[in-house]
Design a protein around this nucleic acid. Structure first.
Length: 516
DNA sequence: CTGGGGAGGGGGCCC
DNA sequence: TGGGCCCCCTCCCCA
């Protein structure tokens, strides 16, 4: 009985085992079949993809060859027409030249970089004021190390080609385009910013898009000159913001991190930097030139090239850390019954403030440890050490009037609100007064008035000893020393006498090196 | 080195 | 007190 049961059980077990084996084999076979099918499909897709890749590669090669040919042709033509133009321009800018000579210029920043490097190419275009139009394009491909630079004159200008060079896409019209889809592209893509200056229009380009900004007086393009507050302004601001946020996601994605440095800086073109620390390290700046050429709102020059970036720069100011004020910065507070003009408030409400002072850029930096170039140090000294002046007198030097109003930037005291407001323009770079004859801007009305004598030729100060006339009283005073032979500045080392302190200073710098 | 010229900044005066 | 204006000092650039 027991044996029978055992035998039956064994049989059942064997049967089950055989059934399971069959099922397992069937499952494996099915799986294999599925895999084979999928693999076949996959192989088919791979083959198709490889075919497409080969086709695309071939097309790419053709495009590349065609592009190089076109580029070469263009270069040859440009070189044939103006062979030394670019070189001369570099040389001039290297010498720090580039003053207003009838045209204006643009700085082209290789996009994709937050900072300017010494070995980075900087292209500066000084409009000649003639009909010649220059387009300077710098493409900086960070990853590939690719760099393409183009310059051509108006007669050779092919807007389509201009875009082609940038994007490799043909057929796009040279109009204002702003592709929102490209704005979300990865930040470290190849970018370029191009500005056409000295001519009826200007172009801003980025790698992923072409931004054309018409800043000239061409009625067809512009409709009307971009007067302050016109619709043109926010457009350009938006564009700049777009480019700005597009340039480098690491450092420029937030304006808080990089205040004011985006397009509010002006400096020696060889040292243009969008990085604050680098800004302060530059040896030479020319703040006025760049502000005039790039940020001269409300003052159309004869060519009508006006670009305003007010909103952006003010927005930057809004992001001033709440801790940044004279209290925290200078540490001594204002418990002396004096007042600090909080410029942040006015900046928040005044969207027409242009803020592009180098000192402005310093607000987040250590004022003491920050190294500055010559021009900056001069300005810096004027701001911070004006109390030490032997003559002229700083605002806090001995004075009968109470200095109730303190500058929130340097803590200097002034007798009235207007004075401190004007003074703070030293820090903010605000230049509300623009010359209607040129693109220059001034922080003070009287300086504008004085400047306009350059255009009018007015020289109200005449020498009683000779026929000489001067536009500034100080110049007449200096000139009078020619007649009097007055030399009141003596070198302490060689007893040599000079009529001017600056001459003595230069002498000591050269001969004795006593003055840093 | 000198002188002319443009410009930045501070202070004072007057209305 | 604010605004305009002027003077002054200074610096820098250039010829």
């Amino acid at each position: 009985m027991v044996i029978n049961c055992t035998a039956q059980t064994e049989r059942k077990i064997e049967e089950n085992a055989s059934i399971m084996e069959v099922l397992a084999n069937a499952a494996v076979a099915e799986i294999c079949k599925l895999v084979d099918d999928d693999y076949a499909v996959f192989r088919l897709e791979i083959t198709q993809s490889q075919k497409e890749n080969r086709t695309l590669r071939k097309k790419l090669l053709e495009l590349k060859v065609a592009r190089e040919l076109a580029e070469k042709t263009t270069r040859e033509r440009v070189l044939a027409t103006r062979p030394s133009r670019v070189v001369d321009r570099y040389r001039r800018m290297a010498r720090g030249e580039g003053h207003y000579t009838g045209g204006h210029r643009s700085f082209v920043k290789p996009a994709g970089h937050n900072t300017w490097k010494d070995d980075q190419p900087i292209t500066v275009d000084e409009g000649s004021g003639t009909s010649t139009q220059h387009v300077i394009i710098i493409e900086s491909a960070e990853a590939a190390g690719l760099e393409v630079k183009q310059e051509r004159s108006e007669g050779e200008e092919d807007p389509r080609h201009s875009r082609d060079i940038q994007t490799g896409v043909a057929g796009a019209p040279p109009v204002v385009t702003e592709d929102p889809t490209t704005a979300t592209a990865p930040p470290r893509t190849q970018c370029s910013i191009t500005e056409v200056s000295g001519t009826p229009n200007a172009v801003l380009k980025s790698e992923t898009k072409t931004l054309t900004v018409h800043t000239g007086s061409d009625p067809e393009r512009l409709g009307c000159p971009p007067a302050p507050g016109s619709e043109y302004l926010p457009v350009f601001q938006q564009i700049l913001k777009l480019v700005h946020s597009h340039v480098d996601g690491d450092a420029l994605d937030t304006e808080v991190d990089v205040p004011s440095c985006s397009y509010t800086t002006e400096m020696d073109p060889g040292n243009i930097s969008l990085d604050l620390e680098r800004q302060t390290d530059q040896s030479k700046w020319d703040w006025n030139q760049y502000s005039s050429s790039v940020y001269s709102e409300g003052c159309l020059d004869k060519k009508g090239a006006v670009i305003v970036v007010d909103e952006m720069t003010v927005k930057v100011e809004r992001d001033v850390p709440p801790t940044w004020n004279a209290d925290s910065h200078l540490g001594d507070g204002h418990s002396q019954g004096r007042e600090v003009l909080d410029y942040r408030e006015s900046l928040e409400t005044n969207t027409n403030v242009t803020t592009h002072s180098p000192l402005h850029a310093l607000r987040d930096c250590d004022l003491v440890s920050t190294s500055m170039g010559h021009s900056n140090s001069h300005l810096f000294d004027q701001v911070l050490n004006s109390d030490d002046r032997a003559q002229g007198g700083g605002a806090t030097s001995g004075n009968s009037k109470e200095k109730r109003f303190l500058c929130m930037f340097c803590n200097k005291g002034f007798s009235c609100l207007q004075k401190v407001e004007i003074h703070q323009r030293v820090h903010t770079g605000e230049k509300p007064y623009s010359c209607n004859q040129c693109e220059k801007r001034f922080s003070r009305q009287d300086h504008l008035k004085r400047h306009q004598r350059v255009h009018t030729g007015e020289k109200p100060y005449s020498c009683t000893q000779c026929h000489m006339r001067f536009a500034q009283a100080g110049h007449l005073k200096m000139h009078l020393k020619v007649h009097t032979g007055e030399r009141q500045f003596a070198c302490t080392h060689c007893r040599k006498m000079f009529s001017e302190r600056s001459y003595l200073k230069i002498h000591q710098q050269k001969k004795h090196s006593t003055i840093k």
